[in-house]
């Protein structure tokens, strides 16, 4: 398990942001890189690799990786729908959106479709309350969700997957 040259250069650049000897500060950003690079989740090997890169004890990495909700410690589907369910989104009907996605994809919250395409998660407030209901998909937010919009997003994902993106 090894980062690409490009990613290793990025790691170096990140470490250089901090004073000498404070490379532990790079842990969160480097874990993000590792998750991107190694299939969307952090295996024990991936975390151990990050530990060795930053000269940390593996437990220091496990402690951090398990604390933050954005690190996946289990494999996830190609597309992860992270639907916000906190108050402001609830007021705008997020419960219905979650139910609808469950029904359309035929999975429960926390599950991945058998084809490995979609994972459904519920999350707590993502700071898009004025654009509710919403979900995060990868790097971006999908906002003002309606059932129709959910259908479109699912179709879009399938199209992209079929096109090999």
């Amino acid at each position: 398990m090894q980062f690409s040259e490009e990613k290793l250069a990025k790691v170096k650049e990140i470490i250089a942001r901090y004073p000498e000897g404070k490379q532990k500060s790079a842990l969160l950003p480097v874990l993000h890189l590792a998750q991107e690079e190694f299939g969307g989740w952090l295996s024990t090997e991936a975390m151990d690799y990050v530990a060795s890169l930053l000269q940390l004890e593996p437990i220091e990495v496990y402690e951090v990786a398990t604390f933050y909700s954005m690190y996946n410690l289990k494999p996830v589907g190609k597309y992860t729908f992270e639907v916000c369910q906190t108050g402001p989104c609830m007021l705008r009907g997020s419960d219905d959106i979650i139910e609808y996605i469950k029904q359309v994809l035929n999975i429960n919250v926390g599950e991945t479709t058998p084809d490995g395409m979609f994972t459904l998660k519920t999350v707590e407030c993502l700071g898009a309350c004025g654009y509710a209901p919403m979900m995060q998909m990868g790097k971006h937010y999908r906002e003002h969700l309606t059932k129709q919009k959910v259908d479109e997003i699912i179709a879009e994902c399938r199209r992209n997957a079929a096109a090999g993106n």
């Binding site: 004890e57 593996p58 437990i59 220091e60 496990y62 402690e63 398990t66 604390f67």
Partner: peptide, 8 residues
């Protein structure tokens, strides 16, 4: 150290 506090 090999043990610590995990999850939150």
């Amino acid at each position: 150290r090999v043990h610590g506090v995990l999850d939150r």
